[in-house]
Every structure is written in C-alpha cells, then in structure tokens.
C-alpha cells in the first residue's frame, strides 16, 4: 500500500461529531503532524488542530493516535507498522473544534500550584544562587514537562474528576519544592494537600507511561505525598 488511511474524529463548532476518512500518499508525509498538514492544505481546509514547533518541545499537538495520547509531530510513521491511523482529540478536555481542545483549565491548574521560585530576598540579582550538580539533579528531570497535557488525558482520575489537579501540575509543584533555590515549600504543600490534590492519585502510572519527555509524574506525586506526611507531623508535634 502506498497510501495511509487516516480516520479522524471531527467535531464541528456546534458540537456535532462524525468520522471522516482520508487517503494520504506515503511519500508526502513522515509524521502524523505532516499528515494533518497535508490534509488541511490539500484535501480538506476545514480540518482544525494545534501545532507549532514540529520537534516535540512546544507541547501543542497532543492528540489520541490509535487510541493512545501522543504528540502528532513525533509520531514517526516509519516506526509504525500499519497503514491505518485513527486520530481523535485528547480525552478529558473539552473539544473546541475537531482536534483542538480547551487547554485553559489545564493551565489554570498549573498556575494554582505556584509554579515559580519563591524567595524572601526577591529582587536581588547580583550573583547566581549556588546549586551543586547534586542539588541540580534533585529537580531537573521534573523540569522537562512541556505542558502538552498527555498525562491529563491518560490519567483515570482526571476522567472522573475534572477538578483533580492532575499529574502535570502536581509534578510542577514538586519540581519547585525540590529546587534548593526555592523557599515556597510549605505554601505549595498546603495547596497540593487539598481534597483535589496529591491524595487523589491512585498510582495507576498511566501518566508516566505516556509522557513524551520521560518525566515521571507518578514518582513526583509519591514524593509530594511523603512531604505532606512530614508536614502533618510538624503540625502535630511542632519542631522544624
């Protein structure tokens, strides 16, 4: 077969859905993103999806490909044995049009964990804050999150509770707590200790499995949980 058969779940602006199938010549495309761009350019100009960098670093093009959350840009068709591709919007997000979903609630959750370094001496930038390679290693893997939302689509808790903070925001909370330059640990632990925080996680591990950047949200949430216990002890027994 010299063509891919691409089946796409379309949702129009009034919310009506349908499946639509396209035939795409294999020699014109090498990734799912290129396939979508080819379809939009030459077969159906109304097809709507998000994309930007094409190199899996901007987080735009998350979608369900053959039933699993993937980045369209790094889904390389040569590595994929088959001629049929099924493309649907990311689960657990409201659909705006076709494959474009509403990511605002996701970014709101991200913001809610205070994902920035908090310091008492903010504003004094004359020199770097020392950070040994060992201290650096404590958080660097968790800083690789591209905010694509794949983990949110894979997380079973997200599917049943839209208010759950979710894997990526909780990972961001841990990323800053684990950074020796940050002094906002207590504030952030209070946030993730809430009813919609880290305690909701069942450790299904789906988030870690789908993360395109090798971040391990599941482990970050475990780290948060142990720190939360530490905080509870402090509250009960005082001390530092």
């Amino acid at each position: 077969m010299d063509e891919y058969t691409v089946e796409i779940k379309r949702t129009d602006v009034d919310g009506k859905t349908r499946m639509q199938t396209f035939k795409v010549p294999k020699d014109k495309v090498s990734t799912v993103l290129e396939t979508l761009l080819y379809i939009k350019g030459y077969l159906d100009q109304t097809l709507t999806f998000r994309y930007s960098c094409g190199m899996e670093i901007c987080g735009s093009c998350g979608m369900e490909i053959n039933g699993k959350p993937h980045m369209a840009c790094s889904f390389v068709l040569d590595n994929f044995k088959g001629d049929k591709i099924l493309i649907e919007p990311l689960k657990h997000f409201k659909i705006l049009r076709d494959l474009a979903v509403d990511i605002d609630p996701f970014f709101d959750k991200y913001k809610a964990v205070k994902p920035y370094v908090i310091r008492n001496d903010d504003g004094n930038y004359q020199k770097e804050l020392l950070q040994t390679p060992k201290q650096f290693d404590e958080y660097i893997d968790y800083s690789m999150c591209i905010k694509c939302g794949l983990c949110m689509a894979a997380c079973p808790i997200e599917g049943s509770d839209e208010n759950y903070l979710g894997p990526a925001p909780l990972t961001a909370a841990w990323r800053f707590i684990a950074d020796n330059r940050d002094q906002g640990k207590k504030m952030r632990l209070e946030i993730v200790s809430g009813a919609e925080g880290a305690s909701r996680c069942h450790f299904a591990g789906e988030c870690t499995e789908v993360c395109p950047k090798g971040v391990n949200p599941s482990f970050a949430i475990q780290k948060l949980r142990s720190s939360m216990i530490g905080l509870e002890f402090q509250k009960l027994f005082g001390g530092k």
Partner: peptide, 22 residues
C-alpha cells in the same frame, strides 16, 4: 550578565560547575 543572574533567581536550570556556579 544581570539577566543571567535574574533568570537564575527565577528558577532557570542553568547547567552548573562542580562548585555550584553557572
């Protein structure tokens, strides 16, 4: 240079030397 230190204070994970400097 001030911008490098500023973004360091804001959390940028600049790669480090063994002594912790940028």
């Amino acid at each position: 240079p001030e911008q490098i230190y500023t973004t360091d204070h804001w959390g940028c994970p600049w790669s480090r030397n063994e002594d912790g400097t940028i």
